[in-house]
C-alpha cells in the first residue's frame, strides 16, 4: 500500500529505503494494478458484449469462433427489436408513470419531511419510529394485500395502479427530514418574526436548500419506474399498459426457425440500458450520495 504515510516517512526520496523493500513495493504495486484491471475488465465485459452483440447479424453471432468486433454493423436489429418489444408504447408509459409519480411523490415527501423536521405535534417521535420500522418489512408482504386492494378499487389496467401505491416512501421521507434538520433553526425563527407563514418558508427557504437531496430522490424514483417489473406484470393484463422492463423480458424475439434472436434481444437490452447510462454519466454523484445511505436500489 503506497500511502501518504510512506512518503512522509521517507521525505528525501526512496534512496533511504532498502533495495529489497523497494522491489517488494514495486511487485505489490504491479499485483494491485493487475488485480484491479482484471476486475474492471470483468465488470465492463457484459456491457461490451451487449453492445457488440446487438450490432451483429445472427449468423455472425452464432459463429463458432466469436468475433470481438462486428464485421458488418447491423443497425436493423434496433428497429426490429423496437417493434417486437413494443418499446415505443412502453417507453411512453414508463416516462408518464415515472414523471407523474416523481412529481407527486416529491410533493408528499416534502410536506411530510417538513412536518417531522420542523412542526410540533403529539406523538411525533412515536409515529416516525413506526414509519422507520415498516422499512424492515419485505415489500412482498404489502404486495399481497395491495393486489387485492387495487382490485377492489377497480384500478386494474390503469396508470393509477402503477403510480398511487408507491407514492409514499419512508426512506425518502427519512432522507429529506435529515437534510431539513441540518438547516439552522435560526432561519426558521427569523422567518417567523418577519411573519412568513410555514408554507412559504418551506417552499422559499427549505426546498431550495435541500435541492441536492431532492435531486437524489428524483433520480432514484425515476430509476425505480424504469426498473420495476413485478408489480406492473401483476396488475396489468393488457400489453399496452406495461412498463419498459416487462416488454424486455416478455417479448418474443425469435428468428424464422424459432430460435432466440440474440442480437435483436441485445439491441432491446441496449436501448433500455441507454438512459440509465446517461443518468450514470451525468448524475452519478447524486446517486452515490443517496445510495451510500441506503442500500436500496430504485
Amino acid at each position: 500500500m503506497t500511502t501518504i504515510a510512506e512518503k512522509k516517512l521517507a521525505p528525501s526520496g526512496s534512496n533511504k529505503l532498502s533495495t529489497s523493500s523497494r522491489i517488494r513495493r514495486t511487485i505489490m504495486g504491479i499485483i494491485t494494478y493487475a488485480f484491479l484491471l482484471l476486475m474492471a475488465l470483468i465488470v465492463i465485459f457484459p456491457f461490451y458484449w451487449m453492445i457488440i452483440s446487438s450490432l451483429k447479424t445472427l449468423e455472425e453471432y452464432k459463429l463458432n469462433v466469436p468475433t470481438f468486433w462486428p464485421r458488418l454493423i447491423q443497425l436493423k436489429n434496433y428497429a426490429d427489436a423496437f417493434q417486437a418489444a413494443n418499446l415505443g408504447r412502453l417507453f411512453l408509459n414508463t416516462a408518464y408513470v415515472g414523471i407523474v409519480s416523481t412529481i407527486l411523490s416529491l410533493i408528499i415527501t416534502i410536506l411530510t419531511a417538513f412536518a417531522f423536521a420542523r412542526l410540533e405535534f403529539k406523538g411525533k417521535n412515536a409515529l416516525f419510529g413506526f414509519l422507520l420500522a415498516t422499512m424492515m418489512i419485505p415489500g412482498e408482504l404489502f404486495t399481497i394485500t395491495n393486489y387485492q386492494t387495487v382490485n377492489a378499487f377497480n384500478w386494474m389496467d390503469t396508470y393509477t395502479v402503477l403510480i398511487v401505491p408507491f407514492l409514499v416512501s419512508v426512506f425518502y421521507i427519512y432522507l429529506l427530514r435529515q437534510n431539513f434538520l441540518q438547516i439552522p433553526n435560526e432561519l426558521y425563527l427569523a422567518a417567523k418574526v418577519d411573519g412568513t407563514s410555514d408554507f412559504k418558508y418551506l417552499w422559499k427557504v427549505m426546498v431550495p436548500l435541500a435541492l441536492p437531496t431532492l435531486i437524489s430522490i428524483t433520480i432514484l424514483k425515476m430509476m425505480g419506474a424504469w426498473n420495476s417489473y413485478v408489480w406492473p406484470r401483476l396488475v396489468t393484463k393488457s400489453e399496452d399498459m406495461r412498463l419498459i422492463t416487462n416488454g424486455l423480458r416478455g417479448a418474443s424475439m425469435k428468428d424464422a426457425t424459432g430460435e432466440t434472436h440474440f442480437p435483436m434481444q441485445m439491441a432491446a437490452v441496449t436501448m433500455v440500458s441507454f438512459p440509465l447510462f446517461m443518468v450514470f454519466v451525468f448524475l452519478r454523484k447524486y446517486i452515490m450520495s443517496g445510495v451510500s445511505r441506503s442500500g436500496i436500489k430504485g
Binding site: P46, M50, M223, W226, N227, Y229, T245, L248, R249, V269, V272, S273, L276, F277, V279, F280, R284, I287, V291, K297
Partner: peptide
C-alpha cells in the same frame, strides 16, 4: 449499480 437487473 445503475443498471436494470432484468436487462443485464
Amino acid at each position: 449499480y445503475v443498471t436494470n437487473s432484468i436487462a443485464i
